[in-house]
Amino acid sequence: MNKFGLWAATLSALWAATASADSTEARCDIYPAGEDHASASIACTFSQRQGYVTITRSDGITHDLSPVGDEPGNYQDQDGHPVYRNSGLGDQGLIFRMPDESVYVYWSTAGLEPADDDNPTAPYTTADYDATTLLRCKAAGESEFGTCPGGILRMDGGQASIVVTSPKGEEFTINFMTDYVNATNRELKANLEGDMWTLEFANGEVWQVPLAAIEGG
């Protein structure tokens, strides 16, 4: 399990605990109320203690959230405004909906890392993977493909697992096995035409992965 999956499992346990405390560096995407595009993507720190949550943002804003009532996910902030926690990001993070904005907290900070002109596939390098690549990818609603970096771990029999970072900055793994293709914590439909896999994800993303990336050679 990668560190972000481990954080998700740990935090799930923390929600049920009454005497635990922890914090992690994270990425916060800020969505103004009623908007479907983030106005900012910034570094932040997520902390929890005995059900109380603190989100400290690098833009100087801090959200101190206190649990309200017996229903999980209901809070109020330091000014008494209602805040609701959603789990729509799966193991990638948590969503906190506030009156004026929503804060998407992602455990992965890969999307905040500056571009490395010497390594276009950063943060993936051949020090950790058999090969690295840039895959064609596009987010939901986009008409044109962009590129997303990936690190390839090859196995016998033309199989491979590719760790990738999505257009939204989410890191996950795509597994190309002999009898199936799947991805960690997300549904997809996979179609092989010629030497190209096309992957259509339930969240609307579309990826293309050439056989050469999987098999090498």
Rank of each mutant, 00 (worst) to 15 (best):
N182Q: 11
N2P: 15
P72H: 13
G88R: 12
G73R: 09
I174W: 06
S166N: 04
G204I: 01
A213K: 04
A38E: 12
D91A: 05
D118R: 13
T54P: 07
H37E: 13
V209W: 12
I42E: 05
Q92W: 14
G73L: 08
D77Q: 04
G204L: 05
D79V: 06
T165H: 06
R97Y: 04
W7E: 12
D79N: 13
T126N: 05
Y75I: 10
G146C: 08
T10D: 13
I152G: 00
R27G: 00
L134E: 11
T178R: 12
C44I: 06
G194Q: 04
N182T: 12
G88W: 13
D64E: 03
G111K: 05
A160P: 03
W15A: 04
P123V: 12
P32F: 05
A33E: 08
E71Y: 14
N86T: 07
Q208N: 03
N119P: 13
Y104I: 02
L11W: 15
G51T: 06
S20L: 15
V163W: 04
E35V: 12
E200S: 13
S66V: 04
E200G: 07
G194T: 03
T133Q: 11
R27N: 00
H81W: 09
D100S: 14
A8P: 04
G158T: 07
V163R: 11
E171W: 00
Q92F: 11
E205R: 06
D77M: 11
G158H: 02
E35L: 12
L135Y: 06
P82S: 00
Q208D: 01
P149T: 02
P82I: 04
D36V: 10
T132L: 04
G169D: 06
E144Y: 08
T18Y: 02
L199E: 04
